[in-house]
Design a protein around this nucleic acid. Structure first.
Lengths: 201, 201
DNA sequence: CGTTAAGTAAACAGCTCGGTGTATTTAAGA
DNA sequence: TCTTAAATACACCGAGCTGTTTACTTAACG
């Protein structure tokens, strides 16, 4: 049994209350937004009494921060850690939405909270920076002449697709992927050992 | 004196109450967000009694919708109606932020309201569609082989820069402009008498 | 003047929210 | 069995919100 399922004295009561709360946050914050989701409703969905919820999380803000922290702690490891893909393919894979992706909750949190000082806003910034860093790193592996620039550009595309998907209610990641392909081709000096696509110019 | 300053009988009392309310909305919705701005505070800033405010706008939702409608009713006319620029230059000018631009309030509204059926959300969609249409139209003037595609791509860049600026609190429009330049160059068949580079995809 | 529309000020209604207090129940150790 | 900690049910608080009502004031007109 996991340590997290035990109380401070080793008891094993009400297992997973914390997980149920976070799971309910996941669902409700995504479907209804942060401000429109009350703690009463959240506790009801989590099947946890309000008292218990506030014993696990000091406040809604703290719960929100933890929710963001758990959302994608490994910063798209499923994409960037794929060794079966070339760096270039990995860069493009970042735009293949996993179908179940709602909308980047970091953007949503930053907009809803509207306070750059809020811990959740700070974490959102950290996450965005981490994504850009991974893109830059991969761009360097792919041989881009200016990896930082390409990384920043691709990160902007991801955010653009997220925002646009949210507002228009229609998928925008294919458009972003098309742009990404152009940018990558322009940023990588026609690979030496690869077959030359004979890009006349 | 303006007609709008008169009452229905030609009186000229308390001139500009409506304008002051909308002006206060402009400021507060931008600085604090929609949900965090109460009608009490808004009326105080507008120097208007609550009673008066609710005589001009039936509800906060209606005020919000009108606020969005007034924000940029001509869809960046200052950019797209500049006859002194070539179409290509106009496309790039869309990424030169006017310094006083806060953050696209349409994205903010859509995220904060979290209800696609809300009139403001619908208007946000309309605005985004209109921007893409103007970009497409200009792309066509510029001679792009696929104007719709280029327009949609540039619109995504604008949204990406807006979202990223909001989350990171640092300007992202230069990055977007750089991408735009690449996309435009790739989409327009090198000047007039050249042969077509046949843009793939 | 008196009429009339528009505005003010302030209390109020009704609701939701985040968060707490209290008494009770449950189950694991000893 | 007794103890003890965790969880529950549920009322409750204070604050803030949208929106309304009431009583009063101001100013333009005929």
């Amino acid at each position: 049994m996991t340590e997290s399922e035990k109380g401070p004295l080793g008891r094993r009561r009400g297992r997973g209350a914390r997980e149920r709360i976070l799971s309910a946050s996941q669902q409700l914050f995504r479907d209804q937004g942060i401000n429109r989701t009350g703690m009463d409703q959240l506790c009801a969905v989590a099947q946890v009494s309000k008292r218990t919820a506030y014993q696990h999380f000091a406040s809604k803000d703290e719960l929100l921060t933890e929710y963001l922290r758990r959302f994608d702690p490994d910063v798209m490891a499923g994409v960037f850690d794929r060794t079966d893909l070339t760096p270039r393919e990995r860069l493009l894979a970042a735009f293949e939405i996993p179908a179940a992706t709602p909308l980047c909750p970091y953007i949503a949190a930053a907009v809803e909270l509207h306070d750059p000082q809020h811990p959740a806003s700070q974490y959102a910034r950290d996450y965005k920076t981490a994504i850009a860093a991974r893109l830059t790193e991969t761009a360097r592996e792919a041989g881009a002449t200016n990896p930082e620039q390409l990384g920043e550009q691709l990160a902007l595309l991801i955010d653009g697709a997220s925002a646009r998907t949210r507002v228009l209610n229609s998928e925008s990641f294919p458009t972003a992927a098309a742009i990404a392909a152009v940018l990558i081709d322009n940023a990588i000096p026609a690979s030496p050992p690869r077959r030359q696509p004979s890009d006349d110019r």
